[in-house]
Structure formats: C-alpha cells, structure tokens
Design a protein around this nucleic acid. Structure first.
Lengths: 212, 212
DNA sequence: ACCTGAACACCGTTCAAGT
DNA sequence: ACCTGAACACCGTTCAAGT
C-alpha cells in the first residue's frame, strides 16, 4: 500500500495509541514494531512523524505534564504548593508505567518547564529567596516522583506471605497489602503535610528576620 | 575454549564487572553480550551463573542496599530515621545509574527487606501504631528514591541557557546549574528535616493522647 | 510527503554439543 | 559443571524505492 490520498498516521494518533499500549502492557511492552502494528502500518512509517522513539516518549511525558495544575499559587504559596503536588501525583498515577520517562528529566519538555517556571516565580513572589525557591521546587518534585515510582503497592505486588516469618515486623505491613493504594495515598499526604508544616515554620522565620 | 580446570566466572566477578559497566555506560549500556565480552567469555556462559539478566540486576540492587545503615535506630527513632534516610541516599548516589532498578521494588531483595523490617520494628517500638510506621517508612522511601531519581543535576544536565528567555523565572535556577549537586543535597536535607519536624509534632500528639 | 521491504547492528535467552 | 556456536524471536533505525 503506497501513499494514500489522506495520510494513515498523524502525531496525535501515534501518541494516543502509544499511551494505550504503555498503559496496557507497560513501558517495555512498547516497541516501534508493535506500535506500528497496532496502527495498521509498518515500523519505518513512524519515523515519518517522529524522529526517534525517545522523542515520542518525551512528547507523551509532556502530555502528562499538561494535566498538572499550578493555578492555586494565585491563592497563596502553601495552597499552591499543595495543589501542585497533589495534581502532579494524580497526573502520574493516571499513567504509572510512564513515570520513569517523566522522572528522567524535564530537560526538553515545554509543559514541565512552564510549570517549574510558574512555581519558582510564585515562591519568589511570596518572599522566598531564589535559591530556597529552587530547593522547594526540587524537594516537592522528589516527593511526587518518589511516591509515583516507589509506590508501596508496586513494591510488594508479588509474592506476599512468603516474607511473613522471615521478617516478623513486616508481617503487619504485608497484611496491609490489600490497602496498598490507600497506604500510598495516605503516606503521600503525610509526607506532603509534614513538609509543608516545616516550610511554613521556615517562612515565618524568614519574614521575621529581614535579610541583613 | 572448553571448561577449564578452574571456572572462568563466578557470581561475584560477574556482579563487580556488571556494576562497573553500569557506572561507566549507564543501565542501557549493560547487555549480556557486552558484559560477557568484558569478562572474556561468550554471552550464554553467564546463564550458567545467573538465570536471567533481571536476577543479576536485582542482586546488584541488593548489594547497594547492604550499604544502608539502620543502626542509629538504637539511639531514638528520629535519629534512626534521619541516619537511615541519609545513608540510603548516599548508597544510591554512589551508583546513580542503578537507581531505577532499586526503585522498581524490594520484592525479592533480602537486604532491602531486612532494613524495612528493622525500620518498621523500631518505629512501632517507639510508640507509632503499625499503620503509621508503615506510612513513615513508605514516605521516607519516596523521598530518598525521588531525590536519587529526579535529581536536579540530572534533570537539567543538557542544554542550559536555551530556556533562559522562554522561562524567565527559571533563569536563576539555570544559572545555579553549576551547583546542581549541592542544590540536590540541600534540597534533600530541607525535605528530610521538614518531614521529621512534622513527624515529631505528630508523635507528641500521639503520646499525649493515648488510644481510646 | 508518506509508506514500504530489506537490511544493519544489535538484544535476551535456549539448546545441543563439547570437555 | 561450565563454556561454546548456532539459532530464535525480538529490538531501533536507515535507506532506497515506490506513489
């Protein structure tokens, strides 16, 4: 089948199908050949639309980042930070198999950088020194990506009871496996709230003691 | 070359060489063929010692985890938690290319599970309810793995100045790229201290209000 | 401009064969 | 028991060829 009047592929359709495959079969389940087959086409055709598989994956990650909401910084920096972190986590949880790609770095991703820019600007506007603002953004990112990546649910997903007798203290933890998703959510909330609690204390000190 | 009197390979030598290759060329740089070549042998020989590449990678991750120190829980739970988190982070920073394997889950790793068991036991002994102890362990793991995975240094390692005009607030952040490792270290400390600060407050409430 | 078959240089893993 | 060559079923990507 040579070039048809109307193209068989476009970037949006390639991305949508690629994301489906990744959600269904995992990141390792996506190959250019399998993706092409899913699209009714041969692998080399994809290279007419995406220069490399890596470019495609980065575009998918950028799509994910577009769902992250930083609008709550308009209220105040604590509200903004909490809402940012929570929507960031939700965006990743919607496509857990793609998290390693997102974690690999925002280097070339517009949506990720635009949001980082907003966060940094809002924190500086709230009185944080630029370096602290950078650190707060980085810390929050650690927490969100760590929670998405190292989720309790994922960590213990296989072979459950086996450890019970060898690691007595983990027995409790393992019996909680059924509620793993809930534990992940609560652990994230605990970490985020504690973090914000500490930051608020720091910010108070900061505004009480003006820079010399 | 058929079977020599003394075996050419053993698991320890395979692991040492594999870790060298990963440190030097990245996780994607390790293939069974390249590893075999480095060891002066053919790829199939490796399967006489390791059942799969995955088993080998998990053994490497377990080696890393063996360097993680949980002994400070003997002092008190805050000291223990801080020392655990810091030595965990240091262990990962020593082999950053292996972090994705560690993050993928401790499911089958003795060293990781033994440490998780100690942490959980120490927290419960300090008066935390088992579920809270699980959450604290999970949260700390999020933070450590997130910091190792989503390091600021790594995220912006390529193309620096390009973003400066497009994302004005990030200009500062990018000019700090030279100190990226330092920013990562300080961000981790900030997040960890804030987290522990919040936990201490929770623990005080907990011991003041005994369970009904 | 977009899709194709064929090809290149790789993968992880299996297996029969050698000693 | 340990190592080998050959093979299987894959990869990402390139490229000349077709329309």
């Amino acid at each position: 089948m040579p070039r048809p009047r109307t193209p068989l592929l476009d970037r949006a359709r390639i991305r949508a199908t690629a994301l489906d495959v990744i959600d269904r079969d995992g990141l390792a389940g996506l190959s250019m050949r399998r993706l092409a087959a899913e699209l009714g086409v041969r692998a080399p055709s994809l290279y007419s639309h995406y220069r490399t598989k890596d470019d495609l994956l980065n575009d998918l990650a950028d799509d994910i980042m577009r769902a992250v909401d930083v609008s709550a910084f308009a209220v105040d920096w604590v509200t903004g930070l909490r809402a940012w972190a929570r929507s960031y986590r939700a965006a990743l949880a919607a496509h857990p198999n793609l998290v390693p790609v997102v974690a690999a770095g925002p280097a070339r991703r517009d949506a990720a950088l635009a949001r980082a820019d907003t966060v940094h600007g809002a924190l500086v506007a709230a009185g944080w020194p630029p370096r602290q603002a950078t650190m707060i953004g980085a810390s929050t990112r650690y927490l969100v990506l760590g929670a998405a990546m190292a989720s309790f649910a994922h960590g213990f997903e296989t072979d459950a009871q086996i450890y019970a007798d060898r690691y007595p203290h983990l027995d409790q933890a393992h019996r909680l496996r059924d509620h793993a998703a809930e534990i992940d959510a609560d652990s994230f909330t605990l970490a985020l709230d504690s973090f914000l609690h500490g930051l608020r204390a720091l910010h108070t000190d900061l505004t009480r003691t003006p820079p010399a």
